[in-house]
Simulated scan of single mutants.
Amino acid sequence: MKQFVVDAFTDEVFKGNPAAVCIMDDWISEELMQNIAIENNLSETSFAVKQGNIYTIRWFTPGGEVDLCGHATLATAFVILNYYEKESVEVHFKTMDNTNLTVKEKNDLYEMEFPSYDLKKIEITEEIIDAIGIKPKEIYLARDLLCIFDDVNDVINFKPNLEKIEKLDGLLLHISAKGEKTDCVSRSFAPKLNIAEDQVCGSGHCHIVPYWTKILNKTDIIAYQASARGGTLYCRLSKDKVIISGKATLFSESKLNIKE
């Protein structure tokens, strides 16, 4: 089986968020996909099989399968459009829950259309303050937990206590503040998925972008993920969809020595 590793949301290797991508003729077992993800030890490994004109896509972290992943979708589209379907400019995906995703190549960007999460404002509890070590301005919950800070430096200098964060509600924890050079700055943590910090989290911005579009009263958001690797996301809120665009670059291409 061939595997690609792509750095997403960047045009430089060693930056952005790396994802492994396997384009297959037929599905392998869930156990094998999970073992490959564990062996890769990246935040995401994506698997895709073409059925008609649509690729069914699945994403596995070292800690299990997830229902949505932005950077690995971008990476998968990059691989398909550059190595499998060079004449095409868009890829149609279907998830396991029958959600349709489309990625379009536009100049040097790959544009993805994702569902927008409906944020519910929740109480700031002592448990949350203790877990993150600082009192946030506001907290919202959807699939993930979103904490808003007043000072961007609190986001940049944040030192997570992963053991405590793992006990909070939500699949991931995102922290965000208004940016100085970009509209917002964020970081994402996923100890429940055996990921300390997600370097650039596309699905996280399906939470982050709806918040900042409302606060800043604008539909177009330039977002920066302030992880060690860093990455920029060009986002737009369109009704119940979040349009996320980013760059991508190939790090490696290899053959996996595995048997079903």
Rank of each mutant, 00 (worst) to 15 (best):
T10F: 03
D11N: 15
E12P: 00
E12V: 10
F14T: 09
N17T: 04
A19T: 02
I23V: 14
D25H: 02
D26Y: 08
I28D: 09
S29H: 04
E31N: 14
E31K: 15
M33Q: 11
M33D: 05
M33I: 07
Q34W: 07
N35G: 09
N40Y: 05
N40R: 08
N41Q: 08
N41P: 04
S43K: 06
S43D: 03
T45S: 15
T45N: 09
F47P: 04
V49R: 07
K50T: 08
G52N: 15
G52E: 07
G52T: 03
T56S: 14
T56A: 09
I57G: 06
I57Y: 04
R58E: 10
F60L: 10
F60M: 06
T61G: 02
T61R: 01
P62I: 11
V66L: 08
L68W: 01
C69M: 10
H71R: 12
A72V: 08
A72K: 04
A75P: 01
V79I: 13
N82D: 09
Y83T: 05
Y83I: 05
Y84S: 07
E87C: 00
V89E: 05
E90S: 14
D97R: 12
D97I: 12
T99Y: 12
T99F: 14
N100L: 09
L101F: 14
T102Q: 13
T102L: 12
V103H: 02
E105H: 13
E105P: 00
D108T: 13
E111K: 14
E113R: 12
E113H: 13
S116V: 04
Y117E: 15
Y117L: 10
L119C: 10
K120W: 03
K121G: 07
I122W: 06
E126M: 06
E126S: 15
I128M: 14
I129M: 06
D130Y: 10
A131N: 06
I132K: 11
I134A: 08
I134G: 01
K135F: 01
E138D: 15
I139W: 00
Y140S: 03
L141Q: 06
R143L: 11
D144R: 01
L145F: 00
L145I: 04
F149P: 03
